[in-house]
Design a protein around this nucleic acid. Structure first.
Lengths: 338, 338
DNA sequence: TTGTACGCGTTATCAA
DNA sequence: TTGATAACGCGTACAA
């Protein structure tokens, strides 16, 4: 592997001169400098990242930690992050799984963005205490080295509930996420708040898991006890889709006997029939904002926690209780600002 | 940041003793060793990755390079890679975009898996020449430091074409990928081979781009010239879905006037109505095999190029030309081994 | 057990 | 001014 030493030898100068030349310092004559650059190019010199990182105590790499690599949410989110990172001279790497956590304390990366509920908050807190910079997208944490960029779950869940209630629903099933999920807890809290405010609305909570299977199981439960028009608010789209799938095998029609609304407005939701009503937000913006915040706290700029706003997307999966004998027409998607 | 030096000071030993103790060498007394370990834990010592990488000349990190972070193909593919990497003591990071290429020559990663047609082969060849280890999933390259793990595109395209022909189709549109795409070229070659063999089959090539919009444009073209039963083989599912979407706005029904088959069998394909026929393969296996091969060539073991086998998945989107007045029944998905 | 050279690049200090 | 010397960052591993 060719190092600055080789270049120095070839150019007949010292390694420091080479380093200065390569970094565009004005401590070297243009003449020597261009000679050195030429030799570097000729030898295909590439600096060693480990050496640079070791000395400069920064890698110019940011890491994002995800629960897994699948998931429809991630595409735009990551593009947004990457765009900001690259514009600011950082590279972005995507990691998943406990093994990769070491990247942060070992200083392979200059900071981390967390969207992985399996990454323990205690662990994050330790890292923050040791000076590592972190942005969390999936929990609340207060620490000078941690910044939050959270979805406005409360607004989203409220929008969804109000939409169902406006359509005339009096009985609403709510399918939750897994126990530890911050998003689930937040959304559920808002659901309860809205429901408690409306005296004539009954709501039933069903424990889910944010996965398709959870929605399917919820469907089974609902079909068994069905006794009249009802709506289901699945706290994420994946469960909503599982639920719709399963309902398709039953006598209950989505957007007819049962209305369904989700949360996240993932790509797939546009393709289910009828179109799934959901809560939308800009995943790209979420990602770019997270990256911006991380870069700021790395630079030592103090920043406040941020929030990502949400909108309601209507769909044929919600059309009011028992449309009696009228034909159910597919609506166009309309985004309603909150 | 606490380093071995701090531990050495606290323990009253030399840094080399600390290093040996931390690495479980038997060159240190159990007594001193456990004492050192205790102090290390107490001080929250974490080794510095840059220093270790610099000295050992390996990072134990593999990188996978993708064109973008979206794409339904990637979930299982990456899980497969990660599983193998972790089992073998490696970490996996996911990168995208030209900026991140530097990770390889700068030796931040020990090897790379490429699934990104925008990553120039010449560039890869240079890296290979300089000793970097690479596995390519999207092109053919011959070099001792490069291994191929490719889809069996020929088999897949042949299966798809034969399926359409078996159903009685005589007129087949083929929507291709973008110019430079290896997969597109390979699949198209197989298409031609099959079509040329069948004297009474007419085939028409339409240039696409492997994106939804390409399928939509192809649909427009086909609708304009439609003059009787025909089938469309989209060289990937994304285009097939775009095409189906657009056809839904026309008078031509998918699985009725027009049969459609795709390639990749992405998650979404299960949700379009009628279910999209496609060519399936194990993305997880593809990923795990790629990782295995990369780790092998890093270890200096010589390996042969590998191939991922494919199967046909039938769907309601293909049901034979003009089903006349009979009702088209949704078929179950059946996987047919090739 | 320990001293020390080494991996590679950066940068402060000092000499020509 | 221009450029060389050397310390440094941190961990590894050989020689003593």
């Amino acid at each position: 592997m060719v190092s600055i030493k080789d270049i120095a030898k070839q150019a007949g100068v010292s390694i420091s001169t080479v380093s200065y030349a390569l970094n565009g310092s004005n401590k070297v004559t243009d003449e020597t400098s261009s000679k050195i650059l030429a030799i570097a190019k000729e030898l295909n010199y590439v600096p060693n990242a480990a050496a640079r990182t070791l000395k400069k105590r920064e890698s110019k790499i940011l890491g994002v930690f995800l629960t897994d690599f699948s998931g429809d949410v991630y595409g735009d989110l990551l593009s947004g992050m990457k765009a900001v990172c690259n514009a600011q001279g950082y590279d972005l790497i995507v990691c998943s799984g406990k093994q990769s956590h070491r990247m942060l304390p070992e200083r392979m990366i200059d900071g981390a963005i967390i969207l992985d509920h399996t990454f323990a908050s205690e662990e994050l807190m330790q890292y923050a205490d040791r000076g590592h910079k972190i942005v969390v997208l999936d929990r609340e944490m207060d620490h000078p080295n941690i910044n939050q960029v959270l979805l406005d779950n409360k607004a989203g869940a409220t929008l969804a509930m109000e939409h169902l209630i406006e359509q005339g629903h009096k009985k609403i099933y709510v399918v939750t996420g897994p126990e530890g999920s911050f998003d689930s807890v937040q959304r559920l809290k808002a659901v309860r708040q809205v429901a408690e405010r409306e005296a004539d609305v009954e709501w039933i909570e069903i424990t889910g898991d944010f996965e398709k299977s959870g929605g399917e199981q919820a469907a089974d439960q609902i079909v068994q006890v069905y006794d009249g028009p009802a709506a289901v608010f699945c706290l994420n789209d994946e469960m909503a889709i599982g639920l719709c799938d399963r309902l398709a095998d039953s006598a209950l029609g989505v957007g007819q006997e049962i209305d369904v609304i989700g949360f996240d407005n993932i790509e797939l939701s546009k393709y289910v029939q009828p179109r799934l009503a959901s809560i939308d937000y800009s995943k790209r913006k979420w990602g770019s904002l997270a990256a911006e915040q991380l870069i700021k706290i790395i630079a030592g700029e103090p920043v406040d926690h941020e929030r990502i706003y949400v909108t309601l997307v209507e769909g044929g999966s919600v059309s009011g209780p028992i449309p009696s004998d009228s034909v159910i027409s597919m609506r166009n998607d309309r985004a309603v600002s909150y």
